[in-house]
Simulated scan of single mutants.
Amino acid sequence: MDILRIILVILHFVGLSMLLGGFLVQVRAIGQGKGTVVRVMIDGALTQLITGLLLVATIEMGDLYDLDNWKIAVKLLIAVLITVLVFVYRKKDPAPSWALWAIGGLTLANVIVAVAWR
């Protein structure tokens, strides 16, 4: 079970990199009013959501340690919001700048919750 958890954590970080990297690539285009939701952002959001759910499931099944359910709920809410935004605006060319900034900001917020919430 521990190897599975480690693989899921790695994939969760890969999803984060895809989502945040896709946003950062679009920052210049957002400033010019030409930003779009690129495919890597969609894949990253789905990877984050799925691996996050699987991580919680493996931790609960293995009874490794107690999870903070409020923290998990906040992270899940943020991940769902990000996923909804990338799917709603994936075909809009250009996507509204507020939506792209929200995707980037919510992604950063999810990292802050993961790291700073003790």
Rank of each mutant, 00 (worst) to 15 (best):
Q48K: 15
P94W: 01
I3S: 11
K92L: 00
L67Y: 06
V74M: 10
W70L: 12
R118E: 10
W101P: 05
F87M: 11
I72L: 10
L67P: 11
Q26K: 05
A102G: 07
W70F: 13
S17N: 00
D2R: 12
A95W: 00
S97Y: 01
V38Y: 01
V88G: 04
D93F: 04
V37Y: 00
L11Y: 05
L24Y: 09
L81G: 04
I3F: 12
I82D: 03
A114C: 11
I6K: 09
F13D: 04
G52H: 10
W98E: 02
V86P: 05
T51N: 10
L4H: 02
K71N: 09
I42R: 15
L100T: 03
F23H: 12
L24T: 11
V38F: 08
I72F: 02
M61R: 12
M61L: 15
L85R: 06
R39P: 07
N69P: 00
D63Y: 08
H12G: 08
Q32K: 15
W98G: 05
G104P: 07
V9K: 13
L19I: 05
I50P: 03
L49C: 07
L76H: 06
F87C: 07
L8K: 06
D43I: 15
G104L: 05
G44Q: 08
Y89S: 05
A114I: 11
I103A: 01
I30G: 01
I112C: 07
G33N: 00
L16D: 03
W101N: 04
L64N: 11
A116H: 04
I50R: 04
E60K: 15
V86R: 02
M18P: 09
G62M: 06
D43F: 13
T51R: 08
M41S: 02
I10S: 10
I6V: 14
V84G: 07
L4Q: 04
L77I: 13
K71I: 11
V88A: 05
I103M: 04
D43C: 09
R90N: 01
W70N: 14
L20R: 08
V80A: 13
L20Q: 10
L8G: 08
